[in-house]
Write a protein that binds this DNA or RNA. Structure first.
Length: 514
RNA sequence: GGUCCGUUCGUCUAGGGGUUAGGACGUCAGGUUUUCAUCCUGGUAACGGGGGUUCGAUUCCCCCACGGACUACCA
């Protein structure tokens, strides 16, 4: 029976653990996505944990923003601060009392120590080293010269702690060990502890650092796989050592470090600070900075569909190995594996994001799109006729990238042009045009059949009898009806706007173009 | 500076010891369309450099270059 417990595979449990220091950016969304895909694929749990141990960088509203973003993307978590779960609480500030004892355990076992150095002391040491062309590191080479429980007497340490002297707890990094471990994406990776420093695990403010907190929580929450950004790779050995120091190595999760998403233009990873200064949103949802009031655009408000954003994000650093490029969330779940995740950073391509959106828009039903366009028309004060709007939708949907392109591409179904495109006018408005248009107008007035096909037959008959080209009629007529060369089949437009409006626009245009 | 990770068309990528190095976005040209968009067809364009290993390397190994990440009492 006992043996059976050992071989029983653990249920997959992954977590997305952002810190609420601002809006989540799309790199974060992708990390969440990959976690979600892996969890669902393995019928495991996807947990949201808020890592708010840095009180100085706390931003109000960020936590709610993160949850709303995940919801918008359809990335549902099984446990989290708002929905609870078996390992509550899911906010590190609410678990504050838990961490100190673990840090002290590490001291008892000789893996950590108290340090009383003031930040200023360390700062000036860094500067001093720098001026000598060296880099100061709190490690085996320096720790014995500093103020900590390794150099102070036991009585002195006790006294300092009892008098609440500000202090931190540092990890005692082994002097010279090779750490060889495995990353799900990169394979074997090696590090040398000689280059690592004695990281602070517990801060003077009474809160743990990321390194301590995330690890204890991952252990307590029975996380089996840590899927995070590549920026964590350098501290991976510290985490491995920490698991060892706690004696938890058998429960250590497997790690996957995702390649970063880079700026489109060139250097560096895409960051929150980029805002939407680069001409595209970097945030899933619009965000208003609570301190400065500055507004950054979001994918949602810019007219992107969450399915398109998810699809696009999944393909940044991952691919199915086939030529298929459209995947729903469920299909991504089926197809996702770590061995198809790339190792190198992926430059974000705003053009491709737009293209994905265009494709998703095109495949949406006319009904669904119609319901998206109705509010646009309502805002403009037009009476709403869903049946009519649906017909317009069918006619123009393939020329839209975003729902809000609707008005620009379809206004002429609702109101006549305000002006006439100069280029087009020059090209198609000949001396005899007014005469031709005037006689066409009379034909239109008289006809009983104002259907698209009927009108087309009518005009074709006219050009044959007068022996002129189709374009001599159609092009100027379009100019009068639409105001430019855009739009679907001309007679479809005429049918939609009706005889009365058609004649009205012809008359108005004839007057204005002289 | 140091450490770690990476390097196939402009971008996202497939591939893998012998291939016409494939696809997608973009771009260009042609076709369809009375126009625009869509759509179709076609073109452009890549294995960073140098050494090995090998009959043969873009593919395996090493070095260099370049890029990125990290180097806080931030995550």
């Amino acid at each position: 029976m006992v043996l059976k417990l050992f071989v029983m595979p653990r249920k997959v449990r992954v977590r997305f653990a952002p810190s609420p220091t601002g809006p989540l950016h799309i790199g974060g969304v992708r990390t969440a996505l990959f976690n979600y895909l892996f969890a669902v694929k393995h019928k495991g749990d996807f947990i949201l944990r808020i890592e708010d141990t840095d009180q100085a960088r706390f931003v109000p509203g960020a936590e709610a923003y993160i949850m709303e973003s995940l919801k918008w993307c359809g990335l549902h978590y099984n446990e989290g601060p708002d929905i609870g779960g078996p390992h509550e609480p899911y906010r590190q500030s609410d678990r504050k009392d838990l961490y100190r004892q673990y840090a002290e355990n590490l001291i008892s076992s000789g893996n950590a120590y108290y340090a009383f150095d003031e930040p200023d002391t360390l700062d000036s040491l860094r500067k001093q080293y720098e001026s000598e062309g060296k880099v100061f590191q709190y490690d085996a080479s320096t720790r014995l010269t500093l103020r900590n429980s390794l150099t102070l007497s036991e009585e002195e340490v006790t006294r300092l702690i009892e008098t609440s002297t500000p202090h931190v707890i540092r990890f005692k990094m082994p002097e010279n060990e090779e750490i060889r471990t495995t990353d799900l994406i990169r394979g074997e990776v090696t590090f040398h502890t000689a280059l690592l420093d004695d990281k602070v695990l517990y801060k003077a403010d009474g809160l743990p650092t990321y390194h301590l907190a995330h690890l204890i929580d991952d252990f307590l929450m029975e996380i089996t796989h840590v899927i995070r950004g590549e920026e964590w790779l350098p501290s991976f050995p510290l985490h491995v050592l920490l698991y060892k120091a706690f004696g938890w190595e058998n429960d250590m999760p497997q790690y996957a470090h995702l390649p970063l998403i880079l700026k489109p233009g060139g250097q560096g990873k895409l960051s929150k600070r980029d805002g939407d200064k680069m001409g595209f949103p970097v945030f899933p949802l619009q965000w208003t900075d609570p301190f400065t009031g500055e507004v950054s655009s979001g994918y949602r408000e810019s007219g992107y569909f969450p399915e398109a954003v998810i699809n696009m994000l999944a393909f940044l650093g991952w691919n199915p190995g086939t030529e298929a490029e459209f995947f729903t969330l469920d299909e991504l779940v089926d197809a996702f594996t770590f061995d198809r995740v790339g190792k190198s950073g992926a430059r974000f391509d705003p053009e491709k994001a737009k293209w994905y959106n265009q494709q998703y828009l095109k495949y949406k039903s006319d009904e669904e799109l119609t319901s998206l366009f109705i509010p646009i028309l309502q805002k403009k004060g037009f009476p709403i006729n869903p049946r009519h709007i649906k017909k317009v939708t069918a006619l123009i949907k393939e020329r839209l990238v975003f729902p809000q392109d609707f008005w620009e591409q379809a206004f002429y179904f609702f109101e006549g042009p305000e002006s006439y495109d100069q280029q087009m006018q020059k090209k198609v408005w000949k001396e005899d045009t007014p005469g031709i248009i005037a006689s066409v107008r009379e034909l239109l007035k008289e006809t009983k059949d104002f259907s698209s096909a009927g009108l087309e037959a009518l005009i074709k008959n006219y050009i044959e009898q007068n022996n002129i080209g189709f374009g001599r009629v159609a092009a100027p007529l379009r100019l009068l009806i639409v105001g430019s060369g855009m739009g679907p089949h001309l007679f479809d437009i005429l049918e939609m706007i009706g005889k009365e409006e058609t004649i009205r626009r012809i008359n108005k245009g004839l007057e204005m173009i002289q």
